[in-house]
Design a protein around this nucleic acid. Sequence first.
DNA 1: ACAAAAGTGTTAGGCCTACACCCATGA
DNA 2: TCATGGGTGTAGGCCTAACACTTTTGT
Lengths: 265, 265
Amino acid sequence: MVVKKGTYTYEYPRPSVTTDCVIFGYDVKAGLSILLVKRGIEPFKDRWALPGGFLQMDETSDECAMRELQEETGLSIYTAETTDADNVDEYRLEAKGISDAKVVTSRRSAFFEQIGCFSDVERDPRGRVISIAYYALVEKGKVEGGDDARLASWFPIDSVPSLAFDHEKILRAALSRLKERIHFKPIGFDLLPEVFTLPQLQALYESILEVHFDRRNFGAKMLKLGILDEVGERPKNAGPRIPVNYRFNKEKYEEMKAKGFRLEF
Amino acid sequence: MVVKKGTYTYEYPRPSVTTDCVIFGYDVKAGLSILLVKRGIEPFKDRWALPGGFLQMDETSDECAMRELQEETGLSIYTAETTDADNVDEYRLEAKGISDAKVVTSRRSAFFEQIGCFSDVERDPRGRVISIAYYALVEKGKVEGGDDARLASWFPIDSVPSLAFDHEKILRAALSRLKERIHFKPIGFDLLPEVFTLPQLQALYESILEVHFDRRNFGAKMLKLGILDEVGERPKNAGPRIPVNYRFNKEKYEEMKAKGFRLEF
DNA sequence: ACAAAAGTGTTAGGCCTACACCCATGA
DNA sequence: TCATGGGTGTAGGCCTAACACTTTTGT
């Protein structure tokens, strides 16, 4: 179906429907960050906003948000299955290479979840527009600025500028959901490079949850879960002392999840 | 704003937007149940469905779902604040009496939360219709059948008939969300009469979570939370041996919640 | 008196938390 | 050699889960 500007007539008024996506990234320097785009047109011209766009008639809201995510991050994505707000509340987007041969990056998936509908009557000055909000966790290193004409930039979560529409409200909801989720799902790994160290992982958790953990306790708990594999390589950014490297073992996690599993902090 | 059938023209096609609400109730005999309405018109005429309706241009999706809930349950409701999918993920609807003098029932609030948007392209045969789904917890005793012309009926959660649209999918999501929430919020009390016994409360938890608890451990844990007040009265359905009665102390709960509080099972 | 349901306490194991010292590296 | 940051183990308290008998009531 092609979106064609034209004349569409209905017996009852209908709202426009958009999706907006809070794209989270993380690195040690900036901490938890989000990807924003600068609006090129009115309303809120030149204000920063969450990436988003209008729902097409032939796509689900999931697909719409994924499309936007793909446009902003430059990642090519294919959908594993459709879920909406189904009980399968986890959504993995596997990257699809332009050609199979070109795909050499190790991990190409992102966590993706619907937050919900934001529908304040006055949230968009253009008229009645409701938005289905999503959040995604991406590996920041793989997404250095969008590749389309729009200006896109990462902002540390504590230095987010004033946002367009009700996007600050959406952001608060996304943060709230992220904090909630990370208690139960090992989604933090989606924000890190495939190989990481325990201190990095701990800093990530501390950045998201805004708390401090004891090094020994954090490490012990993580390793006890049995979902981390030690990796022989060394990280490029060796500190004063070189820490041990780990890799998230998704298979072991899926096994454990099947027989009831809770990850709490 | 009055909804008027007429001619509404837009430059781009727009979906219709509805809300649907999974209304949960509970009693000892039937266990966890939901309120369904029998559709009087096509599509899915004579099939059971979740109560729902179209979003009006002057109301948020929260207000729309509340309006439907009110129509089905006969409860008059006022909104405490608007939340959408905000981080204030809890929503309390306080009943508003026709006149203050008439309000003699003790507890008049219900738990109410948005689940999310369901937007499968083919979910409604009438065309592109997306639905914002909600669930609500009500005291079943106060809602014995809708009072409008539509046929409304309670169904135990394990005897739900085949539903219209994608409502079975929405129901699965609602159950999943309910199970998740009850781990952290004492929302179960919204499903019980104001005065209840520990065995009743335990049966409720067991019905929702589909597990079995040891009586002694369950009681000890509940009482240790300090959010239950012992009450001298007797419940109407006293068993062979008369159990102790309790009342949920919302004030104590709010206090504890403020200083970090987790309710786990 | 018997059946059905409710009340009650203890113990063992696991998990959480708090805490201090040593070692490797780079400056 | 000094500062930085990483690795490591233990002990106490709390929570959890498992477990049986007695009491009350209605039939």
